[in-house]
Design a protein around this nucleic acid. Structure first.
Lengths: 250, 250
DNA sequence: CGCTTAGTTGAGTTCGTTCAACGACTGTGG
DNA sequence: CCACAGTCGTTGAACGAACTCAACTAAGCG
């Protein structure tokens, strides 16, 4: 297990945040921008496979993903792993832990990632001085809860094929909503990740994904998945898809 | 499907909140009590089986459970149901919907319930005037997320027996933490509820619960479950249990 | 008294599992 | 440059967990 690597100064001041101009985030008030600029204390670069946060730790930091992919997961004592959600640019990492004290899940990088680092200590002053930002944090937390609700429905009640289709469509929609990918998006995951997200074995996951490939809904690359027919996936999953909405970015 | 029934004035002013003196909630500042007293606009009494909130609705209200049991759930188009979590006194209902616009899950009463009613409109003024309360709302949301994480781990990666043991231990611990039950707690659910929570069929749920009964860990009553040996359940589920902490109540 | 709801149990089937083996590719060290 | 180990994906065979179908008891209620 590689733990976090180098902390490389700061390349992206909040005023020139590369995410904000994408047109999918709500705009900051000038004072909010000001506050967040100070709230952010650095950037963190992590490699693929690095563990960003370990379950049980009491991190002094809070992060926002600037670039790259990651995932949240939990382990059982005998090593069984459940992936809870995937992290993409704009996602907040570690709010749970900042509020309730201890991180109850781990976070690992799927690709090289660049993270904005915030000081947990100053979180309460955010609540005191910037109700709009406080509202945003609750919003992000509520949104995460909604995603988990849908995932739980999936794992609990959908068949293997429906589950796989739902998962890939879900990730694809989230990534596309960011408009980061001019060309076709490739999701940088292995079939083991898919298995641990769906609650299936790798073998059966492979056979299930094969069906989606045969139906020409996806293509499986070396260490990733490319979506060919999102509508088709939605149909298989019996899912209406995400509704796009302006969301906050802290 | 019975929709909500009678709205019966208000019997419990916030200053005489029956939950707060239990010693498990953080105390209000006087101004906070003041604000919440005005924020609360009434009480809602619902019968067992009543649907409190329907998925897809845009409720103008937010609720806190004063008495009784309920559950949150989602449905697939063909009727398959997944129960997401159980609601007990002190739990907030409808925060998700208040922030992101639309409720993405439904809520049903497991027993007669009494709910405090809040106006969604005034939510933002809560953020402006009372950072402490705002923080509490985020806390509650993060806590819900943690519970969902653990449930997802359970449904995705635990065996049927482990899952059942986890679920019952989890509910039992939450209920006991409230110190509402002097005697042994009885959880007012049917095996169909358990099945829809665990992602199993009723038949297999029955056979699984039978094993827990045979091991003298629980007793199954008419329409409910009594815990006989919580330690034993924890051991079966390979779970360390909830850590008790002072939590907010709005 | 019949009707409904909740729980129980057995038999046969399906879905997903484990075990095992193999090919393709990548990176590493001799 | 090749040998080797490691990761990732693929496939077949045998097994087992969980499912559906079906029948039946017991309790509660009009």
């Amino acid at each position: 297990m590689t733990i976090v690597t180098k902390s490389s100064g700061r390349q992206y001041p909040c005023a020139e945040c590369p995410l904000r101009p994408l047109g999918v985030f709500r705009d900051f008030e000038p004072q909010e921008l000001d506050f967040v600029s100070k709230f952010k204390t650095g950037e963190l670069q992590v490699e693929r496979g690095a563990t960003v946060i370990v379950e049980g730790s009491h991190s002094a930091h809070l992060y926002t993903v600037l670039f790259g992919w990651g995932f949240r997961y939990k382990l059982l004592s005998d090593g069984r792993r459940q992936i809870l959600n995937y992290l993409i640019p704009g996602d907040l990492i570690g709010l749970q832990g900042s509020l309730t004290g201890e991180m109850q899940h781990s976070v690992e990088a799927l690709s090289p990632m660049l993270l904005c680092v915030f000081e947990r200590d100053r979180l309460f002053s955010l609540y005191r001085q910037h109700p709009g930002l406080a509202y945003d944090l609750t919003w992000l937390s509520a949104r995460e809860e909604q995603m988990l609700d849908e995932t739980l429905l999936s794992v609990g009640r959908r068949s293997a094929l429906e589950r796989a289709a739902y998962l890939i469509a879900f990730i694809s929609q989230r990534a596309r909503a960011l408009r980061l990918y001019k060309t076709r998006a490739e999701i940088p995951i292995t079939q083991q990740h898919v298995a641990d997200t769906l609650g299936l074995s790798v073998v059966h996951t492979n056979k299930t994904l094969r069906k989606l490939v045969d139906r020409k809904l996806i293509r499986w690359l070396d260490r990733g998945c490319e979506v060919l027919d999102e509508e088709g996936l939605l149909a298989v999953a019996r899912w209406e898809g995400l509704k796009s909405q302006l969301r906050p970015l802290v």
